[in-house]
Design a protein around this nucleic acid. Structure first.
Lengths: 188, 188
DNA sequence: CCTTCGGGCGTACGAACGTACACTCCTTGT
DNA sequence: ACAAGGAGTGTACGTTCGTACGCCCGAAGG
């Protein structure tokens, strides 16, 4: 009895369009209608696929963190030793702050929501946890935590600064944070 | 010719109410009507005092950066030597990330706008410039820049983390960034 | 072939929005 | 005492919003 002609891509397209719209115009200018137009779906699809604006946003940002965590995994997971990890971190900072404006903007929008609503904070927790797991393969837990925060700060300041700092400053900062003086644990 | 009965506090109250509303509900839920209600002024006052929503927001965030820069000035300006500066930085990180939720949220909202619109980026430039001026009284320019970024990252991660890190971790990170090994410039 | 049925859509409704602008009323100059 | 003019406001207009829901139509079962 008519179980057939469903279009599973529809839902995905709506979520992608939502993120694109947020990235370009900001959460304040997001609406069902605008998303529908951008995704090329009828307005009715909005309430059909999602129970409301809130659920739609949460799911869209869930997708986004999946993507960004995958980026972290790819970059940091490939590092074989401590020096490669340091280089990977520097790459991460510079690619986030100059190449992909979209990811940067979406990250900020997510942090803004997370600063106010615990539901979104859960997404950032998972993100932080995952990146710490990677960093802890090469550095002790305390250092990993400090380095994680440093990545955040360097990326943001580089993206917003009038004259963004060069790669050498990024590398130097990473070196300082990861050089404990009293040595550090070996790679597991 | 009736130059008299103007109420200069009205304008200020509107700006304050705007920031309060943004902090509590987010930019997406800000409207002339809601601000007017919160400030206890008639709707007509909105378009009388401000030419539009955009001008109002820009002015409100201008006020906010004035406030936050004053906080930085007070904390960092009081530091007499390098060690006091380090302690002041640690205080700053912890007070922003736990005491004043309002400032944290507003900062995020501003960064989100700045990431997309140059008009708001000008406000963040001035903020960064001022804090660097203070830091450069105690550290060389490169270190000041790294430290500034570190403050940002530590504050944000501490505010969003499931289990916020302790003060000792903050202090340790600051020490690592500000300990160059090869000494550093004397206080001017 | 015809009936049935549910995935998916067009449309309509009430609420809220930004903004303009005619108006009121108080202060001030004469 | 009166005229005048500008500060400040109430209201109305056109638009856009989120959401609900009755309807359509193609596929599956008989």
């Amino acid at each position: 009895m008519a179980t057939g002609h469903t279009d599973p891509q529809r839902r995905e397209r709506i979520l992608d369009a939502t993120l694109d719209l947020i990235a370009e115009e900001g959460i304040a200018r997001v609406s069902h209608r605008r998303i529908a137009t951008r995704a090329g779906v009828p307005l009715g699809s909005m309430t059909y696929h999602f129970s409301g604006m809130h659920q739609l946003l949460r799911e869209a940002f869930g997708r986004f963190t999946d993507h960004i965590v995958a980026v972290f995994d790819a970059r940091l997971g490939a590092a074989a030793d401590r020096d490669q990890a340091r280089a990977a971190v520097a790459d991460l900072v510079h690619s986030l702050s100059e190449e992909s404006r979209r990811d940067l903007v979406l990250t900020q929008e997510l942090y803004t929501l997370a600063a106010r609503q615990p539901a979104y904070r859960r997404l950032t927790h998972e993100w932080m946890r995952r990146s710490r797991v990677h960093l802890e393969k090469h550095f002790d837990p305390e250092t990993a935590r400090q380095l994680d925060a440093l990545i955040e700060g360097l990326t943001l300041h580089r993206a917003l600064a009038q004259e963004p700092h060069g790669r050498d400053l990024t590398v130097e900062a990473i070196a300082r944070i990861t050089t404990t003086g009293r040595g550090s644990p070996g790679t597991p």
